[in-house]
């Protein structure tokens, strides 16, 4: 959120038309069905997640307007929500979004050294994206995995008990996936997750 904070940045519509795949539309229909009639706004956060996955990793005004139409809510209602939650990105992000925890328990276990190491390793500062568009590096607040500190999340995948060596391994592994299509199914998580 704080990185998204733009001191009244006004986003321009890009004029592009967005449309969910049939599979996603089916999924969205099923999600809307979980809530009582006329309460389809409840589906907003799940649908924004799907949109962010499907439309390139981040949201923009056109995507949000499209969703507002789908859920029959005002566009501003979508903007209000999307800007409130930190998992929604309003600016372009890299293929892999690295989010490392900077809260107390991780810090007490060397989390800040890992933050410094990632900066050095990626050659970018917090909030930036590498020139090749592969990595966006963010610090986040508690990921709820304090017993396995230091912790970071790459897209949906948790990496725990970080050391300089494990960070090397993760980054190297991700680099080899640079040209593979990004998939969000559970297999992707299994394949690349270095779970302890």
């Amino acid at each position: 959120m704080s990185e998204n904070y733009n001191k009244h940045k006004i986003y321009e519509r890009n004029g592009k038309t967005y449309a969910f795949s049939d599979a996603s539309l089916q999924r969205i229909k099923e999600i809307i069905g979980r809530y009582p009639e006329a309460k389809q706004k409840s589906a907003l956060i799940p649908v924004l997640h799907i949109a962010q996955e499907e439309f390139g990793g981040s949201l923009n005004a056109d995507i949000m307007d499209y969703i507002a139409g789908l859920l029959n809510v005002k566009p501003i209602e979508v903007y209000e929500v999307a800007t409130f939650y930190t998992q929604f990105y309003l600016d372009k992000v890299g293929k892999f979004v690295i989010e490392i925890c900077q809260t107390g328990p991780c810090l007490s276990c060397g989390g800040d050294d890992m933050i410094d190491y990632l900066k050095e390793k990626l050659g970018i500062d917090v909030g930036e994206t590498t020139a090749d568009g592969l990595f966006t590096f963010k610090t986040v607040e508690c990921l709820g995995a304090c017993g396995y500190a230091p912790v970071m999340q790459v897209n949906t995948c948790f990496h725990q008990n970080l050391t300089k060596e494990s960070i090397d391994n993760i980054i190297d592994l991700l680099r080899t996936q640079a040209n593979e299509p990004k998939s969000n199914d559970d297999k992707w998580v299994e394949k690349f997750c270095l779970k302890k």
């Binding site: 309460k39 956060i45 929500v81 939650y85």
Partner: peptide, 22 residues
Amino acid sequence: HPGAGAYICGEETALIESLEGK
């Protein structure tokens, strides 16, 4: 129902608001 990154939604009425898509 997934949230999207907001500690405050652990507070029960904030959670309800969030579940209503707000």
